[in-house]
Design a protein around this nucleic acid. Structure first.
Lengths: 235, 235
DNA sequence: TTCTTTTTTCAAGGTGTCGTCATAGAGTTT
DNA sequence: AAACTCTATGACGACACCTTGAAAAAAGAA
């Protein structure tokens, strides 16, 4: 599955591969682009590029995390989250004193770390506004805020309707069977009923289409399911 | 990069003139306004004015640095960086225990000290007197003082209510799920309960909204969470 | 055309979510 | 220690939403 807007990039500087791999997996599941550095030297090289956030181990084989932190601070204002083994007050102060925005004490829960990453990126206001546009602005889908606009007028969708529309609109022209839609909408272990999808599609058309009898966007594929027709706008 | 507005002022309290002069030179090269105090008494006098940061020798001829630190803490929230001759653990704890934000052990490199000063002021600068205004002053949020005004009348919020309101208001239009709000309000990796957020939102609405049944600012997004609607004022 | 299959539509009932309250526990202040 | 405030939680009603079955309409096949 592909995304039109590019995701935020995160650099993990951590010498223990076990840890960095787990964190990487979690963050990628969230949709972030993740790069790894195992040494300070490697980190400094990668930092020539730009990152939206850095996760930084305080203890590295070749270099103090603090020094890397300083380098980051000089070149960007990306949030820095420190990983530290000791929970001592001393480490906190040291970590925060040199400009880290947050710290997490090992051992930590990956979920917690992910939550903090999300929080920091949101706070920095860098969370991408992802809005899908079709047919020169005739239909807009704000993926983040769950809002849909038809000719610049907002139409209020229920959660299920929104999920169906988004599923279809993410891949224009691609047909989704009712069974697939049931899975997407209700979860993967649900005993779904075809008519349910039809009912939602009906309501959806009444809200999104000018003439629900002659739908412009949500087309029926006889015997198969539904597909979305629409030209994504450039920009 | 430098501030267009007035420079930040720094007070150095240090009896060894050799040291203070060097540090002063370095800091002035960075664009800071620097004042010196050679004794505790002199420091206390100068502290009647206001400084953005204080560099404080722990050992002074007439007075313990800790006492000065305490005085500073009472009258302002400027960061304090301690200078200490001994690297003993005891001194560190003492320094940190009484509210210093950082410490540097002599002999130190002036460049490092400057780096720390920069870091601290940048940190403090992020939370500088920032008041969020919405709907032409109908709602004001004083981020620094944790105060909220509705039509210029202060409404008293609990810490939790304030955090929820601020989280939502920081990104108008942005939907935050209950889970996200639980993370923000109660801390990460907390097993939160949805209804808790609802309860706080209810109380918040009663305080902030004219008609809590038809909220103007804090909207419910069915099945998702809450969002803040409001137009940030210019200025 | 007529028949069969699939889709659309509708309304009723079931389910889930939200707003509210009362309350107990945790944390503060006096 | 007592009084107080703040927070977390479970219960419950109200209401929005979802599901479902049946009937009507449409599409394709013969």
């Amino acid at each position: 599955m592909m995304d039109t807007g590019r995701k935020e990039s995160i650099l993990i500087v951590e010498d223990e591969k076990k840890i960095s791999d787990i964190v990487k997996a979690y963050l990628e599941k969230e949709g972030y682009v993740v790069r790894l550095a195992e040494t300070g030297e490697q980190a400094l090289r990668l930092l020539k590029g730009s990152f939206d956030l850095v996760i930084l181990d305080l203890m590295l084989p070749d270099m103090q995390g603090e020094d890397i932190c300083r380098v980051i601070r000089e070149g960007s204002d990306a949030p820095v989250i420190m990983l530290t083994a000791k929970s001592g007050e001393e480490d906190r102060i040291k970590g925060l004193g040199i400009g880290a925005d947050d710290y997490v004490v090992k051992p930590f829960s990956p979920r917690e770390l992910v939550a903090r990453v999300n929080a920091h990126l949101r706070r920095a206001g860098k969370t991408k506004k992802k809005i899908l546009n079709y047919n020169r602005g005739a239909l807009k889908i704000d993926v983040v805020n769950f809002e849909v606009f038809r000719e610049n007028r907002q139409v209020i969708l229920t959660p299920t309707e929104f999920r169906i529309l988004l599923s279809l609109a993410e891949n224009p022209g691609r047909v989704l069977s009712r069974e697939q839609l049931v899975n997407i909408v209700q979860g993967y272990d649900f005993e779904g009923y075809d008519r349910t999808i039809d009912a939602h599609v009906k309501n959806l058309r009444h809200k999104v289409e000018k003439d629900s009898k002659n739908p412009e966007f949500i087309k029926t594929v006889y015997g198969i399911g539904y597909k979305f027709i629409g030209v994504p706008d450039e920009n």
